[in-house]
Simulated assay, not measured.
Amino acid sequence: MSTELLAVRPDRSLTDGEAALLLELLPPERRERLLWQAEQREPLCAYGLLLLALRRRLGWRSLPPVARGPAGKPFFPDFPEVHWNLSHTAGAVLAGVSDRPLGVDIERFRPVTPRLLRRLGADSAEEALGRWVRLEALAKQSGTGVIAVLNRGLTAAEEASAHDLTVFPGCAAAVVLGEGEAPGQVRIWTLEALLEGLAENF
């Protein structure tokens, strides 16, 4: 199973029926967790993208139980060979699935504090966020915290494994893959296409 990257830009609120559909497709523990979140649109779309990818690749009808590793990285305990990672920011979602560990991150451009600029060795907010998403993706791939990665710095191999992604205007995104693996093109979905794809196979 090669790596597949998918993204969606939710451009409107979900209807009650759409949110219910997406919630129904989640494992119970993820559903309960999301019910307590004020903002559900992006997380729901993230898991919807993940399920859509796994349906096409493995024929899964629903997502299996999700557990978390020591540093909080989610995984499928019943299918440890299926690696996946999700990221979302306001109005944008990125998902990746692979047969090897990977990490993805997406962030909307926003102001950055002078302290963070100095910490990241960046001259602008755009440059800082570009570096941040690479660090975050690396931390998510390895299952460690981003602060730990930032504190110790990156090795040359880690730098080489981080790839910038062009996904949506106004966002910085990155993926970290296995050594020597290059990312393919990100498959972009509209919100309507995502919902239709999930409803067709419900």
Rank of each mutant, 00 (worst) to 15 (best):
S2E: 14
S2I: 07
S2L: 09
S2W: 06
L6V: 12
A7Q: 02
R9M: 08
P10D: 09
L14Q: 06
T15W: 02
T15M: 00
D16P: 00
G17A: 15
L21I: 09
L22E: 01
L25W: 04
P27M: 03
R31W: 01
R31V: 00
L34S: 02
L35T: 05
L35A: 11
W36E: 12
Q37F: 04
A38R: 15
E39Y: 02
E39H: 12
E39A: 11
Q40W: 01
E42W: 02
L44N: 07
Y47F: 13
G48T: 11
L49R: 05
L51H: 06
L52F: 03
A53F: 01
A53Q: 10
A53H: 03
R56P: 01
R56Q: 15
G59F: 13
G59H: 13
W60P: 02
W60V: 05
W60Q: 09
R61S: 12
S62T: 14
P65Q: 14
A67C: 10
A67M: 10
R68A: 11
P70M: 08
A71N: 12
A71H: 15
K73H: 09
K73P: 01
F75E: 00
F75S: 03
P77C: 04
D78P: 00
F79H: 15
E81W: 12
E81I: 00
N85R: 06
L86S: 08
S87A: 14
H88Q: 07
H88C: 02
H88V: 06
H88S: 04
H88D: 07
A92S: 07
A95G: 08
G96P: 02
G96I: 03
V97C: 12
D99T: 13
R100D: 05
L102H: 03
L102R: 05
D105H: 06
D105S: 04
F109S: 06
F109W: 11
R110E: 12
P111T: 09
V112D: 09
T113V: 02
P114R: 15
P114K: 11
L116A: 14
L117V: 12
L117E: 12
L117D: 13
R119C: 11
A122T: 11
E126K: 12
E126C: 04
E127H: 10
G130D: 13
R131V: 08
V133M: 06
L135W: 13
L135Y: 15
L135H: 14
A137E: 05
Q141V: 00
G143Q: 06
G143T: 09
T144V: 15
I147W: 13
A148Q: 15
V149N: 02
L150D: 13
R152A: 08
A156G: 08
A156C: 05
E158S: 08
A162G: 07
A162R: 12
L165C: 10
L165P: 03
V167A: 04
P169V: 09
P169N: 09
C171D: 03
A173Q: 03
A174K: 03
A174I: 04
V176G: 01
L177G: 02
E179Y: 01
G180H: 07
E181W: 00
A182K: 13
A182V: 11
A193C: 03
L194N: 10
L195W: 07
G197C: 12
L198S: 11
N201K: 11
N201M: 04
N201H: 14
F202C: 12
